[in-house]
Measured scan of single mutants.
Amino acid sequence: EVTIKANLIFANGSTQTAEFKGTFEKATSEAYAYADTSKKDNGEYTVDVADKGYTLNIKFAG
């Protein structure tokens, strides 16, 4: 089991951190699914992958 950390960075400057656990593939998939659901309210996003994929910096356009 691994933990994927997602740092969500919103257009207004606020941030949120979420953690997803499971296999690398499952946790990563859940992090992207979470970003997709947040996209409806926060606009399109880009992802900067860090820490060999264990940290995702997800920046929303607003």
Rank of each mutant, 00 (worst) to 15 (best):
F60P: 00
A33V: 07
Y34G: 01
T23Y: 06
S38E: 14
D36S: 07
E30M: 14
S38F: 15
L8I: 11
K21D: 04
V49T: 10
T23N: 08
E30S: 09
T3I: 13
D36G: 05
E44W: 10
K26Y: 11
G53F: 02
E19L: 14
L8N: 00
A35K: 01
I58F: 15
Y34M: 09
T28N: 06
A27N: 01
K26N: 12
A11W: 10
I4G: 00
F24A: 05
G13P: 00
E19N: 09
A35H: 01
E30G: 05
N12F: 06
L56V: 05
S14C: 15
T28S: 08
D36R: 06
Q16I: 15
D51F: 04
A31W: 02
E25R: 07
A6P: 00
S29C: 14
N7Q: 08
K5W: 09
D51H: 05
G13T: 04
K52R: 13
K5S: 07
G62M: 09
S14T: 14
F60Q: 01
I58S: 00
K21C: 10
T28M: 15
E30D: 14
G62V: 09
Y54R: 07
N57F: 11
K5A: 06
T55Q: 06
A50H: 10
I9K: 07
F10I: 02
E1G: 08
F24N: 03
D36Q: 09
T46R: 08
V47P: 01
S29F: 12
F10D: 02
G13R: 06
A27F: 02
G43T: 04
E30Q: 12
A35R: 00
A31T: 03
T46Q: 09
S14Q: 13
Y32V: 06
T3D: 02
T23W: 06
F60I: 01
Y32L: 13
D36H: 07
T28G: 03
Y45S: 02
Q16H: 13
S38R: 15
I4N: 01
N12W: 07
T17C: 12
A6L: 15
D41G: 10
K26T: 12
V2P: 03
I9N: 06
I58G: 00
S29R: 14
T28I: 14
Y54S: 05
T37D: 13
E30R: 08
V47H: 02
K59Q: 10
Y45M: 03
E25A: 12
D36A: 09
I58V: 06
V49D: 03
N7A: 05
E1C: 14
V47I: 10
F20S: 00
F10L: 07
F24W: 11
E25C: 12
Y32E: 02
G62D: 08
A6H: 01
E44N: 11
F24G: 02
V47R: 01
S14D: 13
N42P: 03
N57L: 09
F24E: 03
E1F: 14
Y32I: 11
T37Y: 14
I58D: 00
A11G: 08
A33N: 09
G13I: 03
Y34F: 14
T15V: 14
N12I: 04
E44K: 07
D48K: 09
A31Q: 00
K5F: 10
G62W: 08
E25V: 09
Y54N: 05
T55K: 04
K39F: 08
T3Q: 05
L8W: 04
T28H: 06
D51P: 02
A11M: 09
Y34V: 05
K21I: 11
T17W: 10
I9S: 07
A18Q: 13
D48V: 13
L56C: 02
K39P: 03
D41L: 13
T46E: 09
D51Y: 04
V49L: 09
Q16G: 07
A18W: 12
T28D: 01
F20A: 00
V49W: 10
K39E: 05
F24C: 08
E19A: 09
F10G: 02
E19F: 15
A6E: 01
A6W: 03
G13L: 05
V49N: 04
F10H: 04
G13M: 06
K21E: 05
I9R: 07
T3Y: 06
Q16D: 09
L56K: 00
A18M: 15
K40V: 12
N57D: 05
K21F: 12
G53I: 02
A35F: 12
V49S: 09
F20Q: 00
Y45V: 02
D41P: 05
Y32P: 01
A11L: 08
G43F: 04
Q16Y: 14
T17K: 09
Y32Q: 04
D51C: 07
N42A: 11
F60R: 00
T37E: 15
N42G: 08
A61D: 11
A35P: 01
Y32G: 01
A27K: 00
E44D: 12
A50E: 12
T55A: 04
G22K: 01
A11P: 13
S38W: 15
N12Y: 06
E1Y: 14
V2C: 11
G62Q: 09
V49A: 07
E30F: 07
D41S: 11
D51I: 03
Y34A: 05
D41Y: 14
D36I: 06
T37C: 15
E25Y: 08
S14H: 13
G13Y: 05
D51K: 03
Q16F: 14
S14G: 10
A31R: 01
D41V: 13
E44C: 13
D51R: 03
K40D: 09
N57S: 05
F20R: 00
E19W: 15
N57V: 11
K39G: 08
D51S: 04
A61K: 13
E44L: 09
E25I: 10
V47L: 06
E25F: 09
E19T: 13
T15H: 10
A33S: 09
I58Q: 00
K5H: 09
G13H: 05
A33I: 08
Y32M: 11
Y45P: 02
V47T: 06
I58W: 02
Y45K: 01
Y34T: 04
E19D: 07
D48C: 14
E44Y: 09
S14R: 13
V47N: 01
T17I: 11
F24T: 04
G22R: 00
T23E: 08
G13N: 06
N42E: 10
E30V: 05
F24Q: 05
G22Q: 02
G43M: 05
N57T: 11
K5Q: 09
Y34E: 02
T17V: 12
D48R: 09
N42S: 08
E30N: 10
T55C: 06
A61C: 12
K40A: 13
A61E: 12
G62P: 09
Y32C: 06
D48P: 01
E1H: 12
